[in-house]
């Protein structure tokens, strides 16, 4: 099969690899880079399990052709934690039971991370609307929304502390 050399910026690292030019980003992440956190659910852009950040904006890796994203900074669920320190939503998810079978979790993590970066205090309606591209077939939506609210409370408490304690 014809392959071309492409360069991708994944989780802050420049990666060079030879792939078929039409290969989708999700397949490149999972098959060529071993980053299996992003999941293949529907494979046709209608479930959100493959979401990654492209220059900070959540997109669907199953319909993104990798060779077209060479000038974009891609962050996958593996790259959310900074220096091994879980993000507030990652911690809250475990505590509030946001994850059941776990398959949809990486996509939700990406969508929630982007939401909280952009708006640290979203309303319930904004949370529901922002997450409406992500399907959870365990139907654990209430726990997912609760995880977001728990993460919001944590972030607020942390930013209220004096800088020295932080």
């Amino acid at each position: 099969m014809h392959r071309e050399l492409i360069q991708l910026d994944i989780n802050g690292e420049r990666r060079e690899l030879a792939v078929p030019p039409q290969k989708v980003l999700l397949d490149v992440l999972r098959e060529d880079l071993g980053l299996t956190g992003s999941k293949r659910g529907c494979d046709d852009s209608s479930c959100g399990a493959c979401a990654v950040l492209a220059d900070g904006v959540p997109i669907l890796a199953c319909v993104a052709i990798a060779s077209c994203y060479q000038e974009t900074r891609i962050i996958t669920v593996e790259g959310l934690a900074v220096a091994g320190e879980p993000t507030p939503i990652q911690t809250a998810y475990g505590e509030a039971g946001g994850s059941q079978c776990g398959f949809c979790t990486p996509g939700f993590m990406i969508a929630i991370h982007a939401l909280l970066q952009h708006n640290p205090n979203p309303s319930d309606e904004e949370i529901r609307e922002t997450l409406s591209s992500n399907l959870c077939r365990c139907t654990g939506y209430m726990q997912i929304y609760e995880s977001v609210r728990l993460a919001m409370r944590r972030m607020e408490a942390r930013s209220a502390q004096p800088a020295a304690v932080r």
């Binding site: 039409q22 989708v24 494979d43 046709d44 852009s45 669907l60 199953c62 319909v63 993104a64 052709i65 077209c68 000038e71």
Partner: peptide, 27 residues
């Protein structure tokens, strides 16, 4: 022509189109 890909790529997956050249205009 390919832009966002949310319509074209699923249709390509279903083999509804068979282009020889995909023209990504995002740049």
């Amino acid at each position: 022509i390919l832009a966002g890909g949310t319509d074209v790529v699923p249709n390509l997956q279903m083999r509804l189109f068979a282009p020889r050249v995909l023209l990504d205009i995002k740049g």
